[in-house]
Simulated scan of single mutants.
Amino acid sequence: MEGMIILIALLVAGTVGYSASKFVAIADPNVAKRLNKIDQPAERREPIEWVSLPLSRLIPGYFKRIEQDLYWAAFTAPSWSDKTPAYIVGRQILMTATLGVLVAWLLGSNLGLWIGGLLGWFLMRSDLTSKASNARKRITQELPEFLQLMAAESASGAGLDAIMSRVSSSEGYLPAWLRRVLSIAHGRSLLISRETGAGILMQEAQLSGHPDLISFAIQMGFARQGTQVRETLTRLATQFSDSYVGQAEIRTERLASLLGVLVALFYFLPFLVVILVVIGVPLIRAFSG
């Protein structure tokens, strides 16, 4: 009961805080005018974000993973571009409290706090995780073929910067990501070098958190310093292709194991229960009678 009271208090506090912030904004029409006069206004946060800000120092790794997921979600759907990790965690907390209280009330047990809370926590992250995961998989799939295309373009003797500019015009997630990187560069160093350090390509790869893109950026820096660019790109394409095939085989093995468990749970066990009820119960009655 105490847990339910705490969750209700958090839910009420969040609702009151949100309503108060909206009321203040409406009651003071001069707020917008004052903000427009400020040359560099402070970052405006949504009320839901303040719910999760204290957790940003307690679980920074979780906020970092959400930031990387938002990078790819915004890459595929612009509607995610204005979202922040604090917003995602804030809505997780509010949904956790709401579903926890609701399920506990429906079941009449404090166990509903855990059931509803866990459901709300994972439900409000699943859409973001799904979009980010799909984008990462597409990048991994396209990388070997993209490197092969770069190797073919290198036959003209052009530099890596020019090669990447040419192949970025093709279709796919990886070319679209590279076009984004090129638009951010604006004449700055694209690849890593001893003089300038990490280039824009490496910086964006690190922001994305994609291990294959980070490896790609590092290898492009090494390839730029070498003379046999085409051979290097062909070798990298083979390496990434072998890595992708190996990961696919591992996922296939895991899927086979998972299917075996699912068959046992949803086919064998119900079948066994039916057999015991149909045959076992009459036998027990016969021997006991």
Score class of each variant (00 low, 15 high):
175 P>Y: 01
175 P>N: 01
280 G>K: 05
68 Q>M: 11
217 A>N: 07
136 R>V: 09
183 S>H: 05
280 G>I: 10
83 K>S: 11
80 W>T: 14
54 P>Q: 15
87 Y>C: 03
87 Y>F: 15
8 I>D: 07
203 Q>S: 04
62 Y>T: 10
138 R>E: 10
101 V>F: 02
223 A>D: 02
175 P>F: 00
107 L>R: 07
10 L>W: 06
195 E>C: 01
139 I>L: 02
14 G>T: 07
127 D>F: 14
87 Y>K: 11
158 A>R: 14
100 G>P: 07
176 A>F: 02
86 A>Q: 07
96 T>V: 00
267 Y>N: 01
182 L>V: 05
102 L>H: 06
129 T>A: 08
79 S>L: 04
72 W>S: 09
244 Y>F: 10
37 K>Y: 07
267 Y>M: 04
164 M>S: 14
179 R>F: 03
181 V>C: 12
142 E>T: 05
202 M>H: 12
114 W>D: 00
3 G>A: 15
7 L>H: 09
84 T>I: 06
164 M>H: 11
79 S>G: 11
9 A>K: 07
228 Q>L: 04
85 P>L: 08
174 L>I: 03
162 A>Y: 07
19 S>F: 00
48 I>M: 15
68 Q>H: 14
153 E>T: 06
56 S>Q: 02
223 A>Y: 09
199 G>L: 05
259 L>T: 13
216 F>N: 14
235 R>M: 02
49 E>I: 14
45 R>D: 05
111 L>N: 13
216 F>M: 09
203 Q>Y: 00
96 T>Y: 00
268 F>I: 11
216 F>A: 10
288 S>I: 08
31 V>P: 03
54 P>L: 15
207 L>W: 05
136 R>C: 08
99 L>E: 10
266 F>Y: 01
191 L>M: 14
149 L>F: 02
